[in-house]
Amino acid sequence: MKKWLFGTLAAAALVATAPVLAQDDTTLPDFIQHTACEVDLTGSEIPIQHFGDISGSYAFITQPLLAGLADAAAYFNARGGACGATLMQDNRDTGGDPGQTQAAYDYYSGLENPPDVILLYASGDAELLRDQLAEDQIPALISAGSVAGLYGEDGQTPGWIYASNPLYADQFGSFCRYVGANAEQFPDPVVGYISWPGAFGESAYTPEVMAYCAEQGVTILETPEYFPPSATDITTNVQNLVDAGANILYTNSLASGPFMVAKTIVDLGLEDSVQLAGVNWALDTSVGLLSRTVLGSDGLPAVNGIIGSLPFHWWSERELPGVA
């Protein structure tokens, strides 16, 4: 587990591609090894095809993703691309609308040359397209996903969607293991689950996770609280969980979600009695930037002290290749 000290807050990147080199240095670093090109692809393009919500509730996360893809493509293109071919983005904004997600998939899968691989953003999109991707035999990459999206309704059947970081349910279970192993810090842990409704927000709250957490000595309240990403007041949601005995609030939301929970904890004067925790996205830069508007009693942003999973390297790990 990582305890987030606001002074070390930084973005977590899906792929680290920016080594410590001068901007005009067009050589590749030693840790990137290329095989010899058998075909000269100079003059052609290789599209990175992806679609998802870049204008709705997930924009705080997905817009930096697009910027990161653009930076990565520019970096490699400046160093010869892929055997001379230029990397470029081809994407569509669905605004979080499942109908638009389906329309985007219909477009890409119906191309004369369908994608060899496609990039998705959200768990809900993965659940919607899981069977279609398998039927069309198009692999999809996603940063993380729900059990249903990756393994089907039975939770046991792998499909054509591959995630780059742990399942949200596994992250919640890992958090419970951490809490159970640190009894001095958490002597009588009772967790209230508070998140957004929908495939992403609800994906970590499963019977299997609750049973695993109980084995770790951690109680999960049986009634979760959900609030929409557009909510500006979640006092009742937080108070319901605290009144039910929660001394830890775990959120499987991102951007404004963890911020709203932290803000409400501060507003209700619960900083000394309630620990905030969350999924890896709760440690994203966007959460800290949003939290600058609300300071806790320590004078630091409300989210200071949040605990959560961090399955990425951190910007402070300067000794690692690719971390500037």
Rank of each mutant, 00 (worst) to 15 (best):
M1I: 13
K3A: 11
W4S: 05
L5S: 15
A11E: 00
A12P: 08
L14H: 00
V15A: 01
T17C: 07
V20P: 12
A22G: 14
T27S: 12
P29K: 04
F31A: 14
Q33G: 15
H34I: 11
H34W: 15
T35R: 14
C37I: 08
E38A: 10
G43D: 12
P47W: 06
I48W: 01
S55R: 07
G56Y: 14
Y58E: 01
Y58W: 12
F60I: 12
T62I: 03
L66P: 00
L66F: 04
A67V: 06
A70Y: 01
Y75G: 07
N77E: 13
A78H: 11
R79V: 13
G81N: 15
L87Y: 03
L87C: 05
L87E: 00
M88G: 12
Q89E: 08
Q89D: 05
R92N: 00
T94L: 01
Q102M: 04
G110T: 02
N113L: 10
V117F: 12
Y121S: 05
A122D: 03
G124V: 01
E127C: 08
E127V: 13
L129G: 01
L133M: 10
L133R: 00
E135A: 10
E135I: 10
P139E: 00
P139H: 03
A144L: 12
G149C: 06
G152Q: 00
T157L: 14
T157A: 14
T157V: 11
P158V: 01
W160V: 05
I161A: 02
Y162H: 14
S164Y: 03
S164N: 09
N165P: 07
P166G: 09
L167T: 05
D170P: 03
Q171L: 11
F175M: 13
F175Y: 13
R177A: 06
Y178K: 05
Y178E: 11
V179S: 15
V179P: 02
G180D: 04
E184I: 12
D188C: 11
D188S: 15
V190A: 14
Y193Q: 01
I194F: 04
W196Q: 00
A199M: 11
A199D: 09
A204M: 15
T206I: 10
P207N: 09
E208P: 04
E208W: 08
A211M: 12
A211P: 11
Y212A: 06
C213L: 10
G217D: 07
T223L: 10
T223M: 08
P224Q: 09
E225G: 02
P229L: 12
T235V: 15
T235A: 14
N237E: 13
V242S: 07
D243I: 07
A246F: 05
A246I: 09
L249M: 15
N252V: 08
G257N: 07
G257W: 04
V261S: 09
A262S: 15
T264P: 05
V266T: 09
L270I: 12
N280F: 02
L283F: 05
G288M: 13
T293A: 12
L295W: 12
G296Y: 04
G296C: 07
L300V: 10
N304Y: 05
I307H: 00
I307Q: 00
P311T: 04
P311Y: 06
F312K: 03
W315M: 03
E319D: 14
V323M: 03
V323Y: 04
